[in-house]
Write a protein that binds this DNA or RNA. Sequence first.
DNA 1: TAATCGTGGCT
DNA 2: TAGCCAAGATT
Length: 274
Amino acid sequence: MAQQTQISRVADFYSAWLEHFPSFKVLASASRADVLRQWSGLGYNNRAVRLHQLAKDVTGRRHRALPQTIDELLALPGIGKYTAHAVACFAFGQSVPVVDINIRRVLSRLKWKIHSASEMKPEKKIWSVAAAFLPPNNAYDWNQALMDIGSQLCTARNPKCAECPLRHDCASAFSSKFNAKHRAVKKTEPHHNGTPRRLIRGKILKILHTGPKRFNDLLPLLNGNHAASPPKMGEPLAEKQKFLHDVLALMENDGIIEMHGSGTSARISLPESS
DNA sequence: TAATCGTGGCT
DNA sequence: TAGCCAAGATT
């Protein structure tokens, strides 16, 4: 849940989630539709699908429990390098580095002076530095502390350098460049008449939580009010239908919806099987 | 490897 | 208020 999502936003979903799915066994036997319903509002619905599959994978294991090695964790759906290390450290007490967006930012601004890491690519280097800084006996507290510094003090914008315990060792302390305009320009994301595709996906899923719908019932969702571009008066219906069809195909491929039949009367629903 | 995936708070 | 940002993973 915490992937690309602030912890403060996760908290409520987390407790509600555990009430519905108190164990991997319960989660594994739940329907995909129920899983997506409980996830509703959190965003990145792919994560719900992957966690559902993870529960199935885990309950199929010998001890029906989460594996404890980083390599085994990495093999599970939805678990990448960060999460594997975070689980190993925070759940299983292993002495391993953790590099999330917060720690990444803290270490980057410190301008680490670790000689051995100078010829590595940035991604490998930062993990190497995080490992080099790791104290021998309390990785848990260390990693939590770095994350807290990153989220509470060493923030992306307007960092509180005056309150930071690392200010005397930091190459970027009190720098005026944190609010600089020169950030990487984002490419325009896929959209329909100015409405981002991911927002349309969100609307579709939200509607489907109220029950199955027909293809034609979903078409109005493409008429969102947006200031980005004026509505195209003469837009061919076929064009709109093609966009919706493509969006639904992506969502079906992601395991977020099911489609039965085809054409303008196709029946769209949350995944009812598996 | 760059693009894609949601949502809501913050500045 | 429009854009930035968030305990990343996947293809």
